[in-house]
Design a protein around this nucleic acid. Structure first.
Lengths: 102, 102
DNA sequence: AATATATTTCGTATTTTTGCGAAATATAAA
DNA sequence: TTTATATTTCGCAAAAATACGAAATATATT
C-alpha cells in the first residue's frame, strides 16, 4: 500500500486543463476557435453571450494563462486564436486520460 | 452575427464534467478507479494523498454528485467504484470536444 | 490634437471551493 | 451492550472564482 505522497505530475496537469474548461464561457470560446479554423474578436464573442465585456476579458485572460489561446493586436481589435501547440497537448493529455484502462 | 443567447447545452455539459476534474485529488481518484478494474476504499485513498479524511470525503461527494462514482456499503467500509455508464458518457463528451474541427 | 472605438485593468461584492478538526453515524467485533 | 473502526457531516475559516461598472489604455480616424 502506497504511503502518503504528493500528487503525480500528470494528474496535476489534467486538473489544470480541466480547470481551464470548467466554465461554460471558456468551453464556448475554445470550441468556437477549434471549430472555425480561424480567429475571432472579443467584441464578436461578447455579443453572442450573456456576460459583460470585462467578464469576458477575464475568461480570455485565464485561457491565455492556461496557454490555450493567444491574442494578437490588430488595432483597434485584438484577434484571438487557438494556441495550436497547447491545444494538441490538451488533446493528448485528455485522450490518454479517457483511455485509462486496467 | 449571432445575437446574445444562453450557452448551448453541450457546452454546459462539458464544463460540468471538466469542473468535476478540476481538482487533482478528484482526477487521481478517477484515474485510479478507471485504471484498476476494481473498486477502492476511502481509507486506502487517504493514505496515499496529502489530505485529511473529511476533505477526501468532500471530493468523493462531488464525484458522486457528478455521477462519476458510486459508493456501496461494505461495513465498516464503503467501497467506491466508477460509474461505468457515466464514465463512458464523459469519454464520449470529451472525445467529441477534443475532436472539434472546422 | 481631439475624438471615437475596442479592450483591459481596477476596485469591489458575492458566491463557491477547499480544507480542517470535532462530533455524529453506522456497524462489526468483543 | 460496550468498544473499536471507517466514514461522513457539521461548523468554520481562508482562498479562489465569478461578475459588474467605471476608469484606464491603446490606437485609428478626423
Amino acid at each position: 500500500m502506497d504511503k502518503k505522497r504528493e500528487l503525480p505530475a500528470d494528474v496535476i496537469e489534467i486538473a489544470k486543463f480541466a480547470k481551464a474548461l470548467s466554465h461554460p464561457v471558456r468551453v464556448y470560446i475554445l470550441k468556437k476557435l477549434a471549430g472555425m479554423n480561424t480567429c475571432c474578436y472579443s467584441g464578436n464573442i461578447v455579443e453572442e453571450l450573456p456576460i459583460g465585456r470585462s467578464t469576458l476579458s477575464q475568461h480570455l485572460k485565464e485561457l491565455k494563462y492556461a496557454g490555450l489561446i493567444q491574442g494578437e493586436i490588430e488595432a483597434p481589435y485584438i484577434k484571438y486564436c487557438l494556441n495550436r501547440e497547447n491545444w494538441e497537448n490538451l488533446k493528448k493529455i485528455f485522450g490518454d486520460f479517457i483511455n485509462t484502462e486496467g
